[in-house]
Amino acid sequence: MTNFPSDERILIATAQQGNLDAFNGLVVMYQDMAFSVAYRILQDDGMAADVTQNAMIAAYRKIDQFRGDNFKSWLMRIVTNACYDELRLKKRHPTASLDDIEGEGDGLYFDAEDDAPLMATIEGPERVVERSELQAVIENCLQQLSASYRVIVVLADVEGYSYEEAASISGISLGTVKSRLSRARSNLRDCLRKKAELLPDQYRQDNS
């Protein structure tokens, strides 16, 4: 699975001719990003994996329709749409999934902690704990945003897409992206401030 040609354009062109291996090269390239976006939007491990897998299958089916040069955005739009579908589904079955949302939300913390040692190997163990606690707080505040705000924050701030890309991926206008992003950031700021008391000193010095 690793010896694909690395050029994305070649992979896309080959995949468009129905070559599954070439498409899987693209999958390997983007699956972390796709899963990451899906997870942060949905705030649920299993749902995010499900959505990522389904989005990859949908992308393979639609890849002959892909035109242009921004495959990443195109794929992310499929992932984001799949997330919207999943959220709508969840909305329709609120009692079936409410416990799941809360339960999985806690699992989220542990995932963040699992990842923390990888990115903080040079820091001492206390710092690692602080970092993962901080991450958990941020994730928790993200979770409290409404889904439409969360999508934009995830795309623009977590993933670093431009306003234009975020608008194209999420299918909303540029102006809506700007206003939603500003309000989402303001809400996040308020949430983080509220939780700041629970955080280690280091964060409070940074933010207050």
Partner: peptide, 20 residues
């Protein structure tokens, strides 16, 4: 500060391969 904190979130690793 808020934006910087949110941007500090690491990209998650896919829990498994999603190859088809």
């Amino acid at each position: 500060d808020t934006v910087n904190l949110v941007k500090s979130l690491p990209r998650l690793k896919a829990p498994r391969d999603f190859t088809l």
